[in-house]
Design a protein around this nucleic acid. Structure first.
Lengths: 204, 204
DNA sequence: TCATAATGTGAGCTATTACTTGTTTTTACA
DNA sequence: TGTAAAAACAAGTAATAGCTCACATTATGA
């Protein structure tokens, strides 16, 4: 709760041992967040769950917010990597096929740990601005933008950043809503998301 | 942070003076939430901003979560009232016209205080289950469901609870995304939301 | 083998939190 | 005007938070 702006860069994990500690802290945080919520995710609890001491935690993260930020960056990097691979390897296919693959990847990731996904989304909006975080975010938007651009003759919307953001927002919104309501049938949800996206993009 | 489950019903505000205190506490909480975020919204700060003492705060709310819950209920009741009036008074009009009115009301409410709207959405998902809160929620969904039902021959989707939830999720998602990105042109946003909704509902 | 660097520890400090309680002030109304 | 109920007050309490620091342990490599 203390509002310090120290942002000291901490140690980088060099040896295998410390890399494990680092990863354990991130995973412990994710587990607490998804199982017990934001309030339960305090640094003492995180350290305990990770099986390390608080001191170790603060050797790799300048403050609690940095742990959250790193979690978001990791999730977005993972999604971004998958999306980039998909977009790059399917340039001959139709918009519908390619969008289907992206939606499949996105829905799967968000539904794998829905509580966590919702919380990270919320945290992203409240965390102090972090250039790395913003970059990971923009990468995803620009991949969607690239797809729209490549199929711009098939859609009734301009292939702009706004349209890309709308696409992402629709996916996130629908998955959030569905998981909150207890929906678990991923394929059906994917199909509905596809309907919404294609309906938005194709018809004016 | 203390996890008590007392849920004592507190005093009801009877006199004009206490009704003002009650309202001041709610408004102070909303202002702090939207300007400084969830962490800053502690009971001492809320009381101070409201110009009352902490003791007074706890005369009307059993705990901090109850203040948040009341804020959500108030917002959803307001939206529900507007929606109900619109749905009831436009039974002769087209789906497009009626949906446009609902979207206008919903977008306006969420864009009036976007930070607050996002936070309340998040809080709703984490607060202890409250029947009143759930009722307010279901009322909005059932109004959307009623509209879908009345125009079921105009849409390609089943007029089910799932479809109603999808509609609500698309609106919330798009407005959240847009306001997070700094979008302020409400009419344009509304138009895009309408495109997405009609695209989703009309085309399979 | 030993010195140095890397990593890990956890008691404990300080600040802050949610909430209580004993008391005082204000209001309603007989 | 007097009095009982309603409302408001705010000092205080116990718990807990984030984070530091002096020290211990483990690894590296010459």
């Amino acid at each position: 709760m203390t509002r310090k702006r120290h942002a000291k860069p901490r140690k980088q994990p060099l040896q295998a041992r410390s890399r494990e500690t680092y990863a354990a802290i991130l995973e412990a945080t994710a587990r607490i967040l998804e199982a017990e919520g934001l309030e339960a995710a305090n640094t003492n609890a995180i350290a305990e769950r990770a099986g390390v001491s608080v001191g170790s935690l603060y050797q790799y993260f300048p403050d609690k917010a940095a742990i959250f930020a790193e979690l978001i960056i990791a999730a977005e990097t993972e999604l971004g990597d998958m999306m980039e691979a998909l977009v790059s390897s399917t340039s001959g296919q139709t918009l519908e096929e390619r969008l289907g693959l992206l939606v499949h990847a996105g829905v799967a990731q968000q539904m794998a740990r829905p509580q966590l996904a919702r919380l990270l989304d919320y945290l992203e909006a409240t965390l102090p601005a972090d250039p790395k975080l913003q970059a990971a975010d923009e990468r995803i938007l620009s991949l969607i933008g690239r797809l729209l651009q490549e199929h711009r003759d098939m859609i009734a919307r301009p292939a702009t950043a706004t349209t890309a953001l709308d696409v992402l927002s629709i996916v996130k919104g629908m998955v959030d809503g569905a998981s909150f309501a207890g929906e678990t049938r991923e394929r059906q949800l994917e199909a509905r998301v596809m309907t919404a996206l294609l309906g938005y993009l194709r018809y004016s």
